[in-house]
Amino acid sequence: MTYVPKRLIPAAIALSSFTFTMTALPGTPAVQNAIPIPYYNTNVFAAPILGIIGGTIMFVCGWLWLQTRAKKANAAGEGYGQHDETDVGGVGAVKKETETLSTHHTSFTIAMIPLVLVIALNAVMTYFIFPSMDFSGLQAQFPDLNIAGSLGLWSIIISLVVACTVLIVLRIGHWNNLQKTINRGTYDSMLPIFNTASEVGYGAVIASLAGFLIIRDSILNLNPDNPLISEAVAMTTLAGITGSSSGGLSIALSTLGEDYLRMAVNAGIDPELMHRVAVMAAGGLDTLPHSGAVITLLAICGLTHKQSYLNLAMVTIVIPLIAVIAIIILGTMFGSF
């Protein structure tokens, strides 16, 4: 019998949630994929084929890495391991919230409908509905509104609202406590909202400092002929410093977004390519050991950095950075596609 060591579980979870689904796949409603929209006037489907290529590199290489590690562990006689499943991260027994489960189980098809709706409606709004609408009246009423930079965000919001509404309707009569579910979803949405808002504010303060001009110029002049390289370095470095991909993106783009857009236009680089490289690069050093997401994941799994971090770093740092390099090379050679 083949056993998967528990120490590989955090890496497997991170591979599915911290890499290709978060930064590479076109259409993903992840906050990281939405942050560059107002800066580059793009949408979540920016550079779709390049995104799919990058996502494929992350998934395939990450999966192969975990498979080889699992096989090596089994060859050495290592099984699942001895673990105290009642103690999570050494903080004591976990109190599990118990609820009376409904006898009406949601089928796989119904469960997939809202997920498909988010991507499908987003695409319809982005490529068909909004391009056919006349926003001149709205622009006249709100002259300072950047409509081109807002359409991508409006598409995400509308698609998410519709998908949530459809899910509620499909499950009418089967909810244990619909109000509690909505309240919990609302509360959980507050963290990324306030995190992103505070990080943009923090970035604005940093940009106002005199010393920031030196840092900005050194980053922007890293490779003047190819702003993709400079952008990737800036995004992943700030993501590593903050321990957050969304934090690094927010700070970098709030302080350097206009400069990168100008450089891209001057170099003839499609802003969609800038969008995709920025998001994928931010998903590189964001999972350094001090990252809150890493600490939380290891605590939930009841494991330590010593036990699991090496494999987690391989699938969330090393392989994603390789994917970013590949996308930069392809984008430089063939442009955005």
Rank of each mutant, 00 (worst) to 15 (best):
F334G: 12
T165F: 15
R262F: 05
F194M: 00
V315I: 09
T19C: 09
E97L: 15
H275S: 04
C61W: 00
K6E: 13
S254F: 10
A282L: 02
Y127A: 05
G283C: 03
P26E: 08
P224A: 11
C61E: 08
G173N: 03
G292P: 01
P10D: 14
A14T: 02
P26N: 01
S107R: 02
I327D: 14
I156T: 04
N122A: 05
V166A: 06
S16G: 14
L101C: 01
N177L: 03
I158M: 10
T255S: 10
W65H: 15
P10T: 12
I113H: 04
L151Y: 08
E97W: 14
V91S: 12
L145S: 09
G77P: 12
I328Q: 13
I317R: 01
S198Q: 11
E78M: 03
V233W: 05
G89A: 14
I52W: 04
V265Y: 08
S218C: 05
H104I: 03
L145A: 12
E99Y: 01
K95W: 12
L64G: 15
D286M: 04
P131R: 00
F45T: 09
Y80I: 04
S218Q: 13
T126E: 00
L160K: 04
I157S: 06
A197W: 07
V91W: 14
F20L: 01
N177E: 05
L238C: 03
R276E: 05
L213C: 10
L297W: 07
N177Q: 02
F337W: 13
M314L: 14
N74R: 12
V118Y: 10
A34D: 02
K6F: 13
P227V: 09
H105Y: 10
C301Y: 10
A75M: 14
L151S: 07
S250C: 05
L151Q: 03
M112W: 03
V169I: 13
M235C: 14
I9V: 13
N146M: 07
I219D: 06
G185I: 13
D188H: 15
T287A: 11
I157Y: 08
D144W: 05
I49W: 12
G90C: 04
F128A: 10
G203N: 09
P48V: 00
M58L: 12
Q82C: 00
V294K: 00
V88G: 15
K96A: 11
Y80D: 08
Y40S: 10
H83T: 09
K72F: 08
I147V: 11
T86S: 15
T100W: 11
I269G: 02
M235W: 09
R184D: 09
L117S: 09
F130V: 03
I129D: 01
K6Q: 11
N226P: 09
S155H: 00
N33L: 00
G335L: 12
T98Q: 08
L228A: 11
H83N: 10
R276W: 04
Q32G: 06
L153T: 09
G54V: 13
I182Y: 10
E272N: 11
I219R: 07
G90K: 07
M22T: 12
T296H: 08
